[in-house]
Design a protein around this nucleic acid. Structure first.
Lengths: 231, 231
DNA sequence: AATATAAGGTGTATTTTTTACACTAAGGAA
DNA sequence: TTCCTTAGTGTAAAAAATACACCTTATATT
């Protein structure tokens, strides 16, 4: 890097909003910081990006360190670089979100030294976070709320097999409003991206619902984002 | 920055896609590089972000140095940080786009030492660019193409007063397809964000069209992005 | 003055999409 | 057997999107 202007040196990090859906609640993973600054505060999982590491790889690494999961799709949504955002100097952060399946085992393995603990927190109960992470969270949450309205990204939060009611509940939690059951089903099925299974829900004390799967292949074939002006 | 890990030092830049609309063509501003690497290549206007400069400020500065314009709205759309993107080392770039009015004076003032010249190039004729700028351009162009379909951002490219035909032409160039005149007008006017002026086009050798203005106030009142599931 | 040229400006019928809305069916628990 | 809880379903009305063609107006040309 000999020819580059050394006086522009700066640091940058990746921060992740990791969404999970559990018992009808949309949650994100927060860590309690174990080092200064903001020791004892809650924060988004994130860390410095290594010199020889692509940003995406760093995001994947942080996801792995926080949840033990690999190969999850993550989407970069914004880069925050206000001057005062880090009390010790200029640190820019690239923010990603991920949506993961909390497959029963929602126990989060202890992350690293810098975190005392990691906890799932309902998006409705997020406390004030370290640095500008509250702002990052709000922006990311807004992003998925928009995105879910025109792209079926919600499936990643559900178990592989799910009922339409579960899917609808998830939409309702993300959009923060009640949806009409018949209209929701009609519309969702009209996308033709679900595969109806020969299987039913088990262990419920009422009529069991049909199970569905998200069908990636159908999705790829049928889902072309419609633009407003078609002619 | 004493406590921060110095071995993570990295550099970052801002790159800008500056869109302009001129004589029915959508163009972006490119510079011809006057220094290595990629000396002689065309590239997006961009430069290193100073240590004491917010990212947005850097984007504004680069826009100013490229066009002489200040206070133009710019939108950050992605951050590129692949390992090999800069031949001399790890350089991350935050990409912005801006849409500007080419008010007759489309002469671009010589930028800085690092650029030999700056030119407006039709988006259909963009050559292979330095670094990963071709990729950045494609992503940014795709972004505005999507965005224009649900947010009226196109006005920024037109003169303050414009005809509906001019507006339609702009949409057609960005979306790369023909639109129906009657449907376009119906829809655009139904948004109720335009102010019809008591004025007509001048200097044309055919029937002069009514002029319109974009009405920011109406826009703020009437434009709430509609989501797919309203109930 | 008449004519040619070029774009401006307008309405309606059809189709598609969205919305509102309520009852019966199924399964397990008591 | 009854009760409780959720599953599952259809239709009519409204709104939005689409397809489509002709007359009007201003200027330039003869």
């Amino acid at each position: 890097m000999e020819n580059l202007p050394a006086h522009f040196d700066s640091l940058f990090t990746v921060d992740c909003i990791i969404f999970g859906f559990d018992e009808g609640e949309l949650k994100i993973l927060l860590i309690e910081r174990n080092e200064e600054p903001f020791k004892g505060w809650f924060a988004l999982p994130g860390y410095f990006v290594e010199k020889t590491e692509a940003i995406e790889s760093a995001a994947q690494r942080i996801l792995y360190e926080s949840t033990g999961l690999k190969g999850i799709y993550m989407e970069q949504f914004y880069t925050f670089g206000a001057l005062g955002r880090h009390p010790q100097g200029r640190v820019i952060t690239v923010a990603y979100y991920a949506m993961i399946r909390l497959t029963g085992q929602k126990d989060v393995k202890p992350v690293s030294d810098f975190a005392r603990q990691a906890v799932w927190v309902n998006v409705k109960d997020i406390p004030e976070l370290a640095f500008d992470h509250s702002r990052i969270f709000r922006k990311g949450f807004e992003k998925i709320r928009n995105k879910i309205s025109y792209q079926p990204i919600a499936f990643e939060l559900l178990q592989e097999k799910f009922t339409l009611t579960q899917l609808q509940n998830l939409y309702e939690v993300i959009l923060n409003k009640k949806l009409d059951k018949r209209n929701f089903r009609k519309k969702m099925l009209s996308y033709d991206i679900l595969k109806e299974l020969d299987e039913k829900q088990k262990g419920v004390s009422y009529r069991a619902a049909k199970l569905y799967k998200f069908d990636k292949r159908k999705f790829a074939k049928n889902f072309h984002k419609e633009l407003s002006f078609s002619k």
